[in-house]
Structures are given as structure tokens and as C-alpha cells.
Nucleic acid binder design. Structure first.
Lengths: 339, 339
DNA sequence: TGACAGTGGTATAACGTTATACCATGCTTA
DNA sequence: TAAGCATGGTATAACGTTATACCACTGTCA
């Protein structure tokens, strides 16, 4: 009643372990007759090989790690879904961890992954990721792909979003609709993605001769978006359009607007960023720059697997372009609402 | 430049592997002097033990599997977050897989987990999970906890929701508000959770002498909820309140209502089920039966770890009770809207 | 002095695979 | 008939740990 092992299968089939191993892996020269004997024995015993032993000997590992800053955030959840689906199709397993954007926590988690010998790692480097964390990965030669953010002084594959291009599209879209007072709402941390997004916003604003550039920070959640929008609206009633740092913020802003008796789109235009499923199904469907998180997750996993298979290949940086998804929250400007 | 091993650490510290191993695990009788020698050597070499080898020899495994039917669904995403957070605190790793509620896919995924020697498994059994899948788990003595649904003919720990009690609360809440035409919206599959929920609904309806029991199926998504509500409303204009099979459906219904020019709560009352973060932050905050998905995830993980540590303990069934979270989508009934 | 118990360490066999090298056969061919 | 070579299989040493058993000292005490 013990767990069946290759030895017991071999005994059952009356062959050597070496032969049994070869049959089960489909390698070597084995006669059809013994092949069947082994296969039957394995079936009878309900044999499943021990991946640990196999991987120790062969050096092949089919498990990877995925480290994000907040698993239950809808954008990340869709990414996780894309990642696990792709990996599953390749026979890989993913261990998912939530760093909560805490560098200390992240450090411990990476150690846990290294200790459990993952073949590679996909990670969103936490804020203030210290050099030691990067050194750890390098010391253990862990194939890894950074996602959304780069790690400081770390040459590695990267999958991310072309942030500035995306906000250029968003801002230009609003400017084309005649808006002149366009604010940027969201983000409160000094991360590259936000910097790049704001840069794209400013670029278009300047190009169109729009001097009133307002950047208003807030956390990445619906609630924070609501509150921040209310403040922004009170301080700058002249604003007729906003570009948001994320869909959750945009949904929050849209909600605040509705609750204030204004109509998203008609009174004030809003453009989101991410393209989560929910965006299209909000009370007022959101106009957003869609990044297709599910497909981004697939790409991320694909990049890691490729790296694992070709460890010496040159590092690559893949930035996906966002595309404008027209919802109902962006319309042509009307006369000044505060006028 | 090769990966450091216990052997190399021992060599560096000029002791035997056995000694090095004992020092690093903090067992055995070792002098302070050699202890430091080993610790320093390990540090210098950036040594991290190989979990595979350790677990093969010691039999201790600190990795588990988590198998749900749809990772990016907000409810499940919050559960995953709770699970990974708890496991992380215990030094465990979770491999997350999405079965898409496909029994064949699920079967392959469980085999993948068994092959990679997880210490245990948390799973939402897919629809029509065949006996062989259950047999597989039993044959390999995999400690496992079923979540939300039971697997057929499978004695195991279970963590779930007290479904009938929850819908009794929801239905009674609406009846107390004076509603007499209350429909049940959502669910399209013959799963126990839905059966139990409907039973709770019927129980209260009957108890209150409300004969008009309407059960309207639909898939578990916002979009499906929208469409289904529209049909339901067209067919049964007398309905003034609905109990939903999930928050996503409720949010969809609420949205459809708004788009039809009706006010959720004031014209037709809606009660959701789940208590996802988003519910409280919808255009109209949702009245729902909250089962705290994050905390449920923690409980789930805790149950599995307990089982792993005490494999012979009696099986337990833990059903959490939902609690009514009052939002704005449920109000006292007014005169008949269709009158 | 010899018995005995601590103290601090080591040698070695597992764990369950896979990779490498090798060994019997039987059959061809010069 | 000897050399050569497929064919089908086996023995065995790894992989990097940990558990078990054991050994060499030193000091204590009758």
C-alpha cells in the first residue's frame, strides 16, 4: 500500500529499472513486447513518476514562479489567468505569490522560490527593490522576466506596456474631441510606468498648445479614484476631461461624477487605462486604452519559457501597445460646464 | 561558477557535509566555533539548499496546489489572494491552476500536481468530475480539501458556504421589506451550491406564503446578468425584488435596471451573493450576502495545512455563514411599478 | 585504573529518478 | 570463420540532501 516507484513497476514487469524508465519516457530501443509489459505494470500500480527525482537527475525543471504586487486586483488577476493558461498548455506549473509591493516580503518570496528550484521567474519588481535581490537572482542564475516595471541595474527580459505611447493616444483622443482642460488623474508612487504615462500626456498637451497641465495623484483603486476626482473637480472646475492612470481609478471617477449628478462623457470625459473586462461593463462603458491583460499574461509566460529554453539568447524588451477602446465616457466637448 | 551545494559549503568550512547540514538546520550538537565557520561559508558562497533533494530525503514537502474554475473571476481572485497570503506566512508555495470547469482539463492538471509531488491540494471539483479523478487522489494519498463544491463519493475536508442559510437571509430581508414578488436570478448549471441556494429561497417564500416563485437561470457574469434581467423583467413585470446567485449577476442586473431608466433599490430591489470588493463600490452600492472571499481563502489554506500536519484526523466540513451587507439596492416595496 | 557518560563530530546509506557505459545475442558479409 | 554491427536489454553511478549509526576524545568518579 506504499507509493509505487519505478523500482516496483520494474519488478512487476520483470525488467530492470533502466528499461522501465526508458519505456515510460519513450526513449531507447525497446521491443514492442516489453514495452507493453511495462506499460501495463505501470497502469496496474497507478504509477506516476516523482518529478523531484527526475528533475534532480535530468536537470529539467517544469515549474516557475509568478510574483505580482496584488493578485486580486482585476488587471493582475487577468494577467495571472493568461499566465497559468499558457503555462498549463506547456506542461508547466506556476507558483503564484503576492508581494504587496513590499521589498522585504518580495525578498523572502524569491528565496522561497530559489530554494524550491523554479526554472524561472516572472516578477513585477516591488518598489525600492534593493540590489541584493537582483544579485540573488543572478547568483543563482534564475532565468527571469520583469513585468511592467524594470528592476534597477538589472539586465533581463522585460514585458511591459508602451506607457507614453498609450497616454499619447488617450490625450490626443480627448484633444481631438475639442477638450482643452485635460487633467491626469492617478498614481501616487514614483514608478517608471507612471512617469512615462505622464510624459506622454504632457507631450501631447504641449504639442497642442495646452498649457494647463494638471497632474493629480491617487491610489490605484476605485474608492481612491472617487475621492480624488471629487477633490480635483472642486479645485479645478474648468476641467472637462481626464486621462486616468488605470481603469479602477477611471471607474471610481466615473462613479463620483454620476453621484454628483453629472453624466460621464457628456459633462466630463474620462479615459481609462488597462482594459479590464469590467471596464466595458460599467454603468457607463468606459473609454479606455486597452492593454489586453489576459493576452499580456500569455506573452509574459511565453517570454519566460523561451528564455528558459535558450538561456544564452540576447535579452529582449517587449512593449505592447495599448489601443483605444471607445466607450461612452468620452464625447466632444460642450460649452464650459462651470461657465 | 557552478551552483553552490552542501558539499561545497562543507569544503569551504573544512567540515563534513553532515556537520554542515546540521548547522544549517539548527539540529545536532555543534560547537559555536564550527557553527560560525559553516554559516560564514554558506554566506560567502550564497548557498541556498535544494528543496527537491531535501524533500526527497526527509519526506517533507512545502508546496501545495490550488485548482479553481476561473482564476480571474473577482470572487475567486480574492480567494486566491487569501490562500497565497496565508500559505506565504507558513512558508508554503501554491501552484495555481485554472480548470475552466472542464473535467478533462482538471484531470490533467491533477496529474501534473501529483507528478510534481505537492503536499496537498485545494480544489473546486469541476462539473462532472469522474470517479477516476477522485480515485487518483486517493491512490496517491493526496491530502485534499474540496472548496465550494463536493466531489462525488469523496470523503474529504470541505470548506464552503452555508448556501441555503445565506439565501434564507437574503429572501427574508426582501420579504421583510414588504416584497411579495421575489425572483431568484442566476446559475445555469446543476451544481449543489445553486440547488441549496434555491432551496433556501423557496423555503422562505413558502414560509411567508409567497406562491409566486420564479427561478431564472443565467451564467455567472455581469453581461449575462444584464441580459437575463431584461428577459426576466419583460416576462414578469410584477417582480419587485430579486435574489441573485452571485454579485456579478447582481451588478449586471443593477446596471440593466439603470439603463432601462429604473432605479435599483427604489424601483426594484436586488440582493447579491459573494461580497466582492467591487460590490460596495458599484454605481449603486450593492446589498449582498457577504461571505468574505479573502478570509474564506485563508480558512481554506489553513484547513489544508492542518490536514497535511494531521493526516489521520477526522474529516471536517466547514461552512461559513454569509452576512447581510446593506447597500442601496434594497428598499421597502412601493406600489406595484407595473400597476 | 577502568568504567561510563558526555561532547563534537564523521561516514554512509538512503530518497527515486536518468545518463552512461556496457554486455549478450544473432545475423550479415568478406 | 572471424570481424562487424544491429538489436534489446542491464548495471551502476550520479543528482543534493537528511537520518542513522558510529567514532574519538575528554573528563568524572568509584
Amino acid at each position: 500500500m506504499k507509493k509505487p516507484t519505478l523500482r516496483s513497476v520494474a519488478a512487476e514487469a520483470a525488467v530492470s529499472v533502466a528499461t522501465a524508465s526508458q519505456v515510460l519516457r519513450g526513449v531507447g530501443r525497446i521491443s514492442e513486447e516489453t514495452r507493453e509489459k511495462v506499460l501495463n505494470a505501470a497502469q496496474r500500480l497507478n504509477y506516476v513518476p516523482d518529478g523531484r527525482a527526475a528533475s534532480m537527475r535530468s536537470g529539467e525543471v517544469r515549474e516557475v514562479g509568478l510574483l505580482v504586487h496584488h493578485v486580486s486586483n482585476p488587471f493582475n488577476a487577468e494577467v495571472v489567468s493568461g499566465v497559468t493558461d499558457y503555462l498549463d498548455s506547456q506542461g508547466y506549473l506556476a507558483s503564484v505569490l503576492d508581494s504587496r509591493d513590499d521589498a522585504t516580503r518580495q525578498r523572502r518570496q524569491i528565496e522561497l522560490l530559489v530554494r524550491n528550484t523554479r526554472a524561472g521567474l516572472m516578477w513585477v519588481p516591488a518598489l525600492d527593490t534593493p540590489p541584493e535581490t537582483v544579485a540573488l537572482l543572478r547568483a543563482h542564475a534564475v532565468p527571469n522576466v520583469t513585468f511592467l516595471r524594470h528592476a534597477p541595474n538589472h539586465a533581463a527580459d522585460h514585458v511591459g506596456v508602451h506607457n507614453s505611447a498609450a497616454t499619447r493616444i488617450a490625450t490626443a483622443h480627448l484633444a481631438d474631441l475639442g477638450h482643452r482642460h485635460i487633467a491626469y488623474l492617478g498614481g501616487n508612487l514614483d514608478v517608471e510606468s507612471r512617469r512615462d504615462r505622464i510624459a506622454g500626456y504632457r507631450e501631447i498637451m504641449t504639442q497642442r498648445g495646452l498649457a494647463a497641465q494638471i497632474v493629480w495623484p491617487c491610489e490605484d483603486s476605485r474608492k481612491a479614484g472617487m475621492v480624488a476626482f471629487q477633490q480635483l473637480h472642486r479645485e479645478h472646475p474648468e476641467i472637462t476631461a481626464i486621462v486616468c492612470n488605470g481603469d479602477m481609478i477611471a471607474l471610481g471617477a466615473s462613479l463620483a461624477l454620476s453621484r454628483a449628478g453629472l453624466r460621464p462623457g457628456e459633462d466630463i470625459s474620462i479615459v481609462g487605462f488597462d482594459g479590464i473586462e469590467e471596464a466595458a461593463l460599467a454603468a457607463v462603458p468606459l473609454t479606455t486604452i486597452s492593454i489586453r491583460p489576459y493576452s499580456l499574461g500569455q506573452t509574459l509566460a511565453e517570454t519566460l519559457i523561451r528564455r528558459i529554453r535558450a538561456p544564452m539568447a540576447q535579452y529582449a524588451e517587449l512593449l505592447v501597445h495599448g489601443e483605444l477602446t471607445q466607450g461612452a465616457t468620452s464625447c466632444a466637448v460642450r460649452e464650459h460646464p462651470a461657465a
